[in-house]
Design a protein around this nucleic acid. Structure first.
Lengths: 189, 189
DNA sequence: TCAATATATATCTGAGTGATATATATTGAG
DNA sequence: CTCAATATATATCACTCAGATATATATTGA
């Protein structure tokens, strides 16, 4: 099995609690959806292979009516493998940003349309900041005594710093675009 | 053909200049590599399909010795299709951030290792800021009269705002991690 | 002279996303 | 009460995309 990051996302989730594939998908959505995503198409095959590698164990809980719950738990080897990966440095890779791609070719269309795009992007950052603040309140209450809390807050602060910076960038960019709109009228208003 | 973003990255590049698949790959690397990437595995099949759709034309330039140059140029329809896409709003999608994923599970390993990771990340932001400043000087000289310049600078400023914010986040986070290292000694120093 | 680099097209494997299929229980609006 | 929506739960498929590799030649510099 390759060093796919999904493997470690799954191991990491199981390090917090034993759970099913369905739980993992849900938990990822609740806790790390601001910087990570996993699909069933990844989770289920990975869980199978993790069992083969003896990094996790599988227990089937029968439920009346509903499908069986396949609950996966980290083994000692699984935890070691997670630690090994956590200790390795991550090489950041370029994330595709469609919004910036459009702006890069922005000269092709009218400033007015570009302004609309940036304004919408600004709105998104405002909503994100509200969301982050809500999450902060929530986890500070819910996990007050959890030793994971400081780390979870760090990832949250990351998002806050970025969104605040993007808000400033939007304001700066809107000024520039408005200047362009006033002088050149190549594409009309 | 689906609405794959690679299609529009290719159309966008050709809107600046007619060029070969090889040129496109190189130009993407030179101009938008901070927020976009394209592979040959995408570029060559897409160029073929763009010709079928009559969004681009293909001209073969024979060269002695070297392989033929297949030069692609945007048609009027191609430019319209690019404009149509540029006018559409982009829905931002979550970018996976491996660094944050590791930090989220940071409690599993020693603060010392996490500190090293954040310090390295801080270094990366410093290098990025240097790089952005160099690119700024370069394109302001090279494309002083190009009407694309303001848009190119906007995407550059985006990177600068983000990296500056991340630098501040790193400093804040290092303070927190050092506090954790001092109090709890669960994993040793 | 020879290695490294640049020019140039093309394909393949594997990672990852999103949609879909299948099946049942619960919950709330009308 | 009924029906739609939502939640629980596992699983697969099609498609996008990245990265490596194959192939072939010209130029540049140690």
């Amino acid at each position: 099995m390759k060093e796919t990051k999904s493997k470690y996302a799954v191991l990491g989730m199981l390090s917090i609690n034993p759970m099913s594939g369905y739980d993992i998908k849900k938990r990822v959505g609740e806790s790390i959806s601001n910087f990570w995503s996993e699909s069933y198409g990844q989770i289920y095959p990975i869980l199978k292979r993790l069992v083969d590698e003896e990094l996790v164990t599988k227990t089937v809980e029968r439920q009346s009516g509903k499908p069986d719950r396949h609950v996966y738990a980290l083994t000692e080897r699984g935890r070691k493998e997670l630690h090994r990966w956590l200790a390795e440095g991550a090489v950041p890779k370029v994330e595709r940003n469609e919004f910036l791609l459009k702006l890069f070719f922005g000269e092709e269309i009218s400033p007015t349309i570009n302004i609309k795009h940036v304004e919408k992007y600004r709105e998104i950052q405002l909503h994100l900041l509200e969301k982050y603040e809500m999450i902060k309140q929530e986890i500070e209450n819910k996990h007050a005594d959890d030793s994971n809390l400081p780390y979870w807050l760090m990832t949250l602060r990351y998002g806050q710093h970025v969104s605040q910076a993007l808000l400033r960038w939007c304001d700066e960019t809107l000024l520039t675009l408005n200047k362009i709109r006033k002088v050149g009228r190549k594409h009309g208003v």
